[in-house]
Lab assay of single mutants.
Amino acid sequence: MSRVPSPPPPAEMSSGPVAESWCYTQIKVVKFSYMWTINNFSFCREEMGEVIKSSTFSSGANDKLKWCLRVNPKGLDEESKDYLSLYLLLVSCPKSEVRAKFKFSILNAKGEETKAMESQRAYRFVQGKDWGFKKFIRRDFLLDEANGLLPDDKLTLFCEVSVVQDSVNISGQNTMNMVKVPECRLADELGGLWENSRFTDCCLCVAGQEFQAHKAILAARSPVFSAMFEHEMEESKKNRVEINDVEPEVFKEMMCFIYTGKAPNLDKMADDLLAAADKYALERLKVMCEDALCSNLSVENAAEILILADLHSADQLKTQAVDFINYHASDVLETSGWKSMVVSHPHLVAEAYRSLASAQCPFLGPPRKRLKQS
């Protein structure tokens, strides 16, 4: 649940008159999402009104509101027999009622949201009550392989729920002597030191190019640089560091992050930047690179990204790559990247197969709970 924001200063709310007192009302909304995959969808019983329910879910471990999704594969009634019906059901509720908006969509073979439908307002739910769409999607369109909505005969539904909580009022009075504290510009100011090479005390040599930097900042941000300058190493004695395995453009992006906490060109060089972040123990930059690479996972590059993640101990990226390969196994196994990995990294192939087997055979063990970014 997000923290209630402070109200904007009255002088910034309007260029008009300023009242002596004010009130700011925040209506709290808890948002969460749920993904439900139905394997072997074409084998569902086709009687009209037949119901399939998901397991229950909530916004978190401490949330007492429990929900589930309900599907009628062949419609709810005679009117909707040519459609799939989809509903959000409130299973248990400690209150007399709650209000919530919802959005349903289908994830296609690429994991993209399609055929989205959402409620136009927050509906009133009581325990045992459901709301949804009797005519969510035509069955003939859903079952047509050309539309790519049932890869490997799996129907994957994605649901986003927004639950309306209580409202909170914050009130106060205006004073004539309003003090406005300026925003912190530390990142910009440190970035200026790097860009202008002011007050530098060490030189970093990268592929024949020299960059002036500040030992204190490098040591504070990177345990690797800290070790170089702290001990009686040649880098500490000469205040000069030779860097041979990072390209200059990648190095500059890494230094921008060290000084400012930002990497504006990360998406263009996420793979190389991940390697640099791993070498210099820049954990936050490493996770930022993992996130960017996750966003660009595809059938063509899944094997290469899995190898990269394994090489640099990028655990979150590795998990996402394995899950992606499992979901698109029939396509990924035909790529040149996968065939190369079979020869060069057989242990990763074995890991992917083990994960695929456990996903398809849940009876082999208890269900695993899916539970950071600093």
Results as ranks from 00 to 15, higher is better:
residue 54 S to E: 04
residue 225 F to G: 00
residue 304 E to Y: 11
residue 222 S to T: 15
residue 220 A to L: 15
residue 194 W to P: 07
residue 291 D to V: 07
residue 119 S to I: 01
residue 185 R to F: 06
residue 30 V to S: 01
residue 197 S to R: 14
residue 159 C to G: 08
residue 354 R to Y: 07
residue 327 Y to G: 04
residue 185 R to C: 08
residue 202 C to N: 09
residue 228 M to E: 13
residue 46 E to D: 04
residue 97 E to Q: 10
residue 41 F to V: 00
residue 187 A to R: 02
residue 55 S to C: 04
residue 293 L to K: 06
residue 115 K to T: 01
residue 162 S to W: 05
residue 2 S to T: 10
residue 153 D to H: 04
residue 33 S to V: 08
residue 19 A to M: 07
residue 149 L to V: 02
residue 310 D to S: 06
residue 113 E to C: 11
residue 164 V to S: 08
residue 270 A to V: 05
residue 355 S to V: 06
residue 284 R to S: 04
residue 59 S to C: 11
residue 329 A to I: 02
residue 146 A to T: 13
residue 20 E to A: 03
residue 20 E to C: 09
residue 189 E to Q: 08
residue 245 D to G: 03
residue 339 K to D: 15
residue 332 V to A: 04
residue 233 M to N: 14
residue 369 K to V: 03
residue 373 Q to C: 15
residue 248 P to S: 03
residue 344 S to F: 08
residue 3 R to I: 02
residue 97 E to C: 14
residue 348 L to F: 09
residue 222 S to Y: 01
residue 55 S to D: 10
residue 85 S to Y: 12
residue 44 C to W: 05
residue 107 L to Q: 11
residue 127 Q to E: 08
residue 31 K to V: 09
residue 36 W to C: 04
residue 46 E to S: 04
residue 190 L to A: 14
residue 77 D to S: 01
residue 40 N to S: 07
residue 249 E to Q: 01
residue 60 G to I: 12
residue 78 E to K: 10
residue 95 K to R: 15
residue 198 R to L: 14
residue 137 I to E: 13
residue 292 A to F: 08
residue 33 S to P: 02
residue 81 K to W: 08
residue 98 V to A: 15
residue 214 H to C: 14
residue 193 L to M: 05
residue 338 W to R: 00
residue 43 F to L: 02
residue 224 V to T: 15
residue 176 M to L: 05
residue 174 N to Q: 03
residue 111 G to Y: 10
residue 235 E to D: 06
residue 345 H to S: 03
residue 347 H to D: 08
residue 101 K to V: 09
residue 226 S to M: 15
residue 135 K to V: 12
residue 289 C to F: 00
residue 72 N to H: 11
residue 218 L to N: 00
residue 276 A to G: 01
residue 13 M to Y: 04
residue 187 A to N: 12
residue 186 L to M: 04
residue 161 V to S: 09
residue 98 V to W: 07
residue 223 P to F: 08
residue 222 S to C: 14
residue 49 G to D: 02
residue 137 I to N: 06
residue 157 L to N: 00
residue 87 Y to M: 09
residue 309 A to D: 01
residue 319 T to D: 10
residue 169 N to P: 02
residue 204 L to V: 15
residue 163 V to T: 04
residue 347 H to M: 05
residue 125 F to H: 06
residue 206 V to L: 14
residue 154 K to V: 13
residue 272 D to F: 05
residue 15 S to C: 04
residue 220 A to F: 15
residue 160 E to C: 08
residue 251 F to R: 00
residue 250 V to P: 06
residue 309 A to T: 10
residue 84 L to H: 06
residue 147 N to K: 05
residue 347 H to I: 10
residue 294 C to W: 12
residue 322 V to T: 09
residue 57 F to Y: 02
residue 264 P to W: 06
residue 128 G to A: 15
residue 241 V to G: 04
residue 356 L to R: 07
residue 324 F to C: 07
residue 230 E to G: 10
residue 338 W to N: 00
residue 25 T to K: 00
residue 277 A to C: 02
residue 20 E to M: 01
residue 110 K to H: 05
residue 321 A to S: 06
residue 169 N to A: 03
residue 293 L to W: 08
residue 365 G to L: 15
residue 361 C to Y: 07
residue 137 I to H: 10
residue 63 D to T: 09
residue 312 H to I: 11
residue 212 Q to L: 11
residue 349 V to E: 06
residue 217 I to C: 12
residue 306 L to H: 06
residue 2 S to D: 05
residue 321 A to M: 13
residue 272 D to L: 03
residue 51 V to K: 06
residue 24 Y to H: 09
residue 29 V to N: 08
residue 84 L to A: 09
residue 180 K to A: 05
residue 50 E to G: 01
residue 82 D to T: 08
residue 309 A to I: 00
residue 81 K to G: 12
residue 106 I to K: 12
residue 72 N to A: 03
residue 323 D to C: 12
residue 270 A to T: 07
residue 230 E to F: 06
residue 255 M to R: 04
residue 9 P to H: 05
residue 309 A to K: 00
residue 65 L to F: 08
residue 138 R to L: 10
residue 271 D to P: 09
residue 201 D to E: 11
residue 172 G to Q: 09
residue 161 V to A: 06
residue 278 D to V: 01
residue 103 K to C: 15
residue 308 L to M: 08
residue 294 C to Q: 08
residue 39 N to V: 04
residue 211 F to N: 14
residue 321 A to P: 00
residue 167 S to T: 10
residue 85 S to D: 15
residue 60 G to A: 02
residue 106 I to D: 00
residue 192 G to T: 08
residue 63 D to R: 10
residue 28 K to F: 12
residue 368 R to T: 14
residue 293 L to G: 07
residue 187 A to Y: 10
residue 174 N to W: 03
residue 161 V to K: 00
residue 14 S to W: 01
residue 106 I to N: 09
residue 212 Q to P: 12
residue 153 D to P: 12
residue 243 I to Y: 10
residue 336 S to T: 06
residue 143 L to I: 02
residue 3 R to L: 03
residue 75 G to P: 02
residue 327 Y to Q: 06
residue 128 G to V: 10
residue 355 S to R: 05
residue 9 P to V: 03
residue 204 L to Y: 12
residue 22 W to I: 02
residue 37 T to R: 11
residue 5 P to A: 10
residue 158 F to I: 14
residue 4 V to P: 04
residue 272 D to A: 01
residue 63 D to Q: 01
residue 360 Q to M: 13
residue 226 S to P: 15
residue 127 Q to L: 09
residue 92 S to M: 10
residue 138 R to C: 08
residue 279 K to T: 02
residue 53 K to G: 04
residue 311 L to F: 03
residue 311 L to K: 11
residue 299 V to R: 10
residue 197 S to M: 13
residue 6 S to Y: 07
residue 99 R to M: 14
residue 300 E to D: 09
residue 319 T to M: 13
residue 263 A to P: 01
residue 49 G to P: 01
residue 5 P to D: 01
residue 58 S to A: 12
residue 159 C to T: 04
residue 83 Y to R: 05
residue 221 R to M: 12
residue 68 C to N: 09
residue 37 T to H: 06
residue 102 F to D: 00
residue 367 P to S: 11
residue 93 C to K: 07
residue 160 E to D: 11
residue 343 V to T: 05
residue 361 C to Q: 14
residue 323 D to N: 04
residue 118 E to P: 12
residue 147 N to T: 07
residue 93 C to M: 13
residue 369 K to F: 02
residue 189 E to N: 01
residue 136 F to E: 01
residue 56 T to P: 07
residue 250 V to N: 12
residue 199 F to M: 15
residue 55 S to G: 11
residue 362 P to W: 13
residue 173 Q to T: 03
residue 160 E to Y: 14
residue 142 L to Q: 03
residue 29 V to Y: 15
residue 168 V to F: 11
residue 217 I to N: 04
residue 295 S to G: 05
residue 90 L to C: 08
residue 295 S to F: 07
residue 324 F to K: 01
residue 154 K to I: 09
residue 39 N to K: 04
residue 18 V to K: 10
residue 364 L to R: 15
residue 304 E to Q: 10
residue 296 N to V: 09
residue 106 I to S: 02
residue 344 S to K: 10
residue 35 M to N: 08
residue 150 L to S: 08
residue 336 S to H: 10
residue 43 F to K: 12
residue 141 F to V: 14
residue 231 H to W: 11
residue 100 A to S: 14
residue 329 A to Q: 03
residue 158 F to H: 14
residue 143 L to K: 12
residue 168 V to Y: 06
residue 149 L to P: 12
residue 74 K to L: 04
residue 207 A to Q: 15
residue 325 I to D: 00
residue 193 L to I: 02
residue 70 R to A: 09
residue 371 L to Q: 15
residue 352 A to R: 02
residue 351 E to C: 09
residue 145 E to H: 12
residue 102 F to H: 00
residue 304 E to D: 10
residue 218 L to H: 00
residue 16 G to Q: 14
residue 345 H to M: 06
residue 148 G to C: 06
residue 152 D to V: 13
residue 7 P to W: 14
residue 202 C to D: 11
residue 195 E to Q: 02
residue 289 C to I: 12
residue 108 N to Y: 03
residue 361 C to A: 12
residue 122 A to C: 05
residue 85 S to F: 08
residue 233 M to R: 14
residue 209 Q to S: 12
residue 249 E to F: 04
residue 166 D to T: 10
residue 273 L to V: 02
residue 72 N to M: 06
residue 206 V to N: 08
residue 358 S to F: 06
residue 305 I to W: 08
residue 331 D to P: 08
residue 39 N to T: 07
residue 287 V to M: 07
residue 204 L to R: 00
residue 141 F to P: 13
residue 111 G to M: 07
residue 298 S to C: 12
residue 272 D to R: 02
residue 268 K to D: 09
residue 312 H to M: 14
residue 36 W to V: 07
residue 217 I to K: 00
residue 73 P to R: 12
residue 57 F to S: 01
residue 134 K to F: 00
residue 139 R to S: 05
residue 106 I to F: 08
residue 243 I to R: 06
residue 348 L to I: 02
residue 100 A to L: 04
residue 89 L to M: 08
residue 371 L to F: 10
residue 84 L to Q: 01
residue 277 A to P: 01
residue 42 S to C: 07
residue 325 I to M: 03
residue 229 F to G: 14
residue 357 A to W: 06
